[in-house]
Design a protein around this nucleic acid. Sequence first.
RNA 1: GCGCCCGUAGCUCAGUUGGAUAGAGCAUCAGGCUUCGAACCUGAGGGUCGGGCGUUCGAGUCGCUCCGGGCGCACCA
Length: 600
Amino acid sequence: MVMEQVKEQFKASLASALPGQDIALERPRSWEHGDLAFPCFRAAKALGVPPPKLAQDLAARMTIDGGELVAAGPYLNLRLQPEARARVLLEALLGPTPFGSAPDHDEAVLVEYSSPNIAKLFTIGHLRSTMIGHALAQVNRYLGCRVQRLNHLGDWGTQFGTLLAAYKRWAEAENPALDQDFPWAEEIPERRRNPLFRLFQLYVRFHQEEEQDPAMRDEARAWFRRLEEGDSEARRLWSWFREISLAEFHRIYARLGVAFDALDGEAFYEDRLAAAVAKLETSGLLEEGEGGARIVRLEDAGIQTPCIVLKADGTSIYATRDLAAALYRQETYAFDRCLYVVGSDQVLHFQQLFAVLNKLDPWFQGRMVHAPFGMVKLPEGKMSTRKGNVVFLEDVLDEAVTRVRAIIEEKNPDLPSKERVAEQLGLGAVVFFDALNDRVKPITFAWDRVIALDGDTGPYVQYAHARICSVLRKAGEAWAQAVRLAAPAGPEVAALTFHLATVPDELPGLDEPAAQSLLFELAGLPDALRNAQREHMATPLARQLLAIAKTFSGFYTQCPILKPDIEAPVRDARLALCAATARALRQGLFLMGIQAPEEM
RNA sequence: GCGCCCGUAGCUCAGUUGGAUAGAGCAUCAGGCUUCGAACCUGAGGGUCGGGCGUUCGAGUCGCUCCGGGCGCACCA
């Protein structure tokens, strides 16, 4: 990438001017300072001169092709000439190599995300793991990693005891096929009248009644035990409940454009549990805990609560399955990094899990990463599937789409394929909102914020993209083609393939501050991608896309492109900048799992 | 009680390995479409970055401490 070459040249030049000094460059806050900055504080201190003096000396002594070096107080800024800056960036953005991507470097990354529990409906909370994980998988791929997307389905565990017990109690006699509403069903919307919702109702009812009758808990436990011991009736029902759930999950994943390379849920590891436990036993890590459970003590790792590997009744627990899964993945994928995109309420669990693995095999040290995210709360308090006070994901998506539909009718009633665009914008709003803020911060759900359509939102970025497409269409087929895809895109690819576009030989008309600041924001995209990878969240990417879209809007209002008095070379240079911006926005949104329509 | 996370404008939040005058959006107020899409743009007001001490040439960012909030703390996931 050409911008990298400029950076390397600057770095090398500084290194020879300041032998032995650590050369750390940074990206200035504002484009007016320049493209790259060298803060002189540290080197100046080492050399015993005031930082501003050093900056001036360096500015006088060094030269960089196509740019000037300016001392601004304690900073030495590299500022490219406006035309050189435009050329460097436009060639990188319109060239064949995806902008800001990295060549394959053979690093194997596993991302475990979404991982819904069978027999539960997707709530707004599930969107977090699903879309953060999707974006992480996409960004890591874009940056050259070999990524495996893992969905650790919650298809095993005591909850199945609950489900089996509830089914036997209330459904088997009255509604064995779960094909009609239960007598106790309240008025529910048509599209929720499916078997999965009825399973969900059974689950909720069991937990409600269990509070009055604690003996029911033993009933559920007994059923899980039967399941784990291979009881044929328990197995048959389990498998059926799982199918019902998966059918619904796949429908939602298709809507969100999310896919996985493996759906090995907890049940998949069932026949590996014994081996995992045996391995712990041989390593001498297992001890007898209070009440007869088999545990691993972790005080020496700074964790006071031991990890329970087998419950007192001998059955497995989620830690057992996570241990078996980690060992399986070690063998199967030989990964460099394994990211768990799981809620922050499980930090202790992952600390324990990683600590046990490190004791078992130092190979795991540093490879296991929990990327926790803040839980979604309601204004009234915590969401609880068991208690039934939840916001369902599809209700949010549908409401967002409905709101978009109304705005389309108001502002652009002649738009072709309205329904498809409404879907893309509605989902864009919800998904972008989720990525906008720091992963670890809890979110208090508020309709107005989640499905907002103006301000710092997905549709704002999508609008900038659509406006550019509109200009390019008017500029002619060749330009319109420059932002269209030459190959189909889907959840299986990370880098979009655009039709060929060429940068004009001359680039006048990009000297205005509005154009230069847009170029500067575009130049920030590679850093944003690397930050997203390093911090395991899409937030830096979302923020940078917003900055690009915002700066583009300024450019658009201040720099006419197709007006009659605009000369051809100026027009073409500006069109090239438009095309470059549209590509950056479309690619960036795509990595986040958001589509960018050409019209809206 | 112990552990982890968080505290930045009225509200919701950004703030890159510690670096230039702490930035957005919403809300409020004042402007801008016979001209490339106004789902937009320009401007204004609004801050002792929870309090204090410390490390540093330099702290919203690192350390200690206090206050306030969230989550977790042995057989749920």
